[in-house]
Design a protein around this nucleic acid. Structure first.
Lengths: 154, 154
DNA sequence: TTTGACAGTTCTATTTTAGAACTATAGCCT
DNA sequence: AGGCTATAGTTCTAAAATAGAACTGTCAAA
C-alpha cells in the first residue's frame, strides 16, 4: 500500500489517516484548536521546519480542513482557519489528549485542563453511543459490512 | 523537534502522537480492533513490509499497547493482543472512522456499520462532556494550564 | 526428504524529513 | 534614499525512514 492510494481505500479509517495520519499534521491541528492561525506562529511554537509546515498547510487546505484567508492586502498575507470539516476533527484530537492524560502522564499531573463553558465544569471527553447514550467500549461493538464494502466485493 | 523527544513534551497530544501518530501504526491498530492478532495476518491484510510491521509491533509492545502472547511452543510462535491501555485507544480509532465516514466518503456509502450490542442498534460515536453529558464542540471548551504545565513554567 | 507455514531479519533503492540559507514584499526609522 | 524588521514562504543538501525483495530458522505434514 502506497500513500497516494490510501485515500481511495474502502475504509474510513484509512481515508482519515491519509489526511491527518502523520505526526506534524496532528500537532499543527492541535495549534489550530489553540487558536494559532499564522505561519510564523505555527513555526515558532512547533519548531517545525518551514518547508514541511508549508507543505502540510497546503495539504490541509487542499483537503478542506483549513481555509487560507487574507488578513493583509499589502503585503499579501494569509492566515489559516479551521473549516467546519476541520472543526469536526475535534473529537479525534480530544480523544488523543485524553488518552495521553490517562496513559502517558507523569507525576506532575496534566498539562491542560478543559472547561466546558456550557456547564462550567472541568471535564473529560467521553465517547458514547448515539442511540442509547451509554459509554462505548470496543468489546460491546459488532461490525457489519456496509454498502460501500459490499459494493467493493469483500 | 525530533521524534525521540516528542514523548517527553509537556503535552498529552504530543505524547500520544509519539506512540500512535504514524500511518502504519494506526492501520495496525485498526486490524487489532478487527481481531487480527498474528504477524502473517497483519502483513497480508495491510500489505505492509515485513520489516516495518516487525518494527511497529515491537514499538506497540514496548509502550504496553499490545502484549506478545505465545500460542504455540514448538515452534515458538506469538500473537499480539491489545492490553487495556490498547483497548482504551478505541475512542480515537472510532472518532477517526466516524470523521472519515462523514467527510471522506463517496457515493457508495459507508464501508462498515457498527452495532452496539448493549442496545442492539446501529450507532455513531458521539463525544460528550463527562460532567453534563452534552455533545462537545470545540468552541464551547476553554483551556486552562494544568499542574504539569505550570510546573514546566509556561 | 521435500514442501509449506509462520515469524521474523537483512539488504539496497527510493522517498521523506531536518536544518540551514535564501527570496520577496512592504512598513518604519534615520 | 538606505537600511532594518516582520511575515511568509522557497530552495538546497544531508540524514533518516520506508519500500521492496530476498533470506533465515523452526517445525509439521506429505
Amino acid at each position: 500500500m502506497r500513500w497516494d492510494t490510501l485515500e481511495e481505500e474502502t475504509c474510513s479509517l484509512a481515508r482519515t489517516v491519509a489526511v491527518i495520519g502523520d505526526r506534524w499534521t496532528l500537532l499543527i491541528l492541535r495549534e489550530c484548536f489553540l487558536r494559532v492561525r499564522r505561519f510564523e506562529a505555527f513555526q515558532s511554537s512547533l519548531q517545525i521546519t518551514r518547508h514541511l509546515l508549508s507543505e502540510r498547510l497546503k495539504k490541509l487546505v487542499r483537503f478542506g480542513i483549513l481555509r487560507r484567508v487574507p488578513y493583509s492586502d499589502a503585503p499579501k498575507r494569509y492566515e489559516y482557519i479551521l473549516t467546519q470539516k476541520g472543526l469536526d476533527l475535534y473529537p479525534i484530537i480530544m480523544a488523543m489528549v485524553h488518552w495521553g492524560d490517562a496513559h502517558m502522564g507523569d507525576e506532575r499531573g496534566r498539562p491542560l485542563l478543559h472547561e466546558h463553558k456550557t456547564c462550567g465544569k472541568l471535564f473529560d471527553p467521553v465517547m458514547v453511543c448515539s442511540e442509547c447514550g451509554e459509554a462505548l467500549h470496543a468489546k460491546q461493538v459488532h461490525v457489519h459490512a456496509g454498502p460501500a464494502r459490499r459494493e467493493a466485493g469483500r
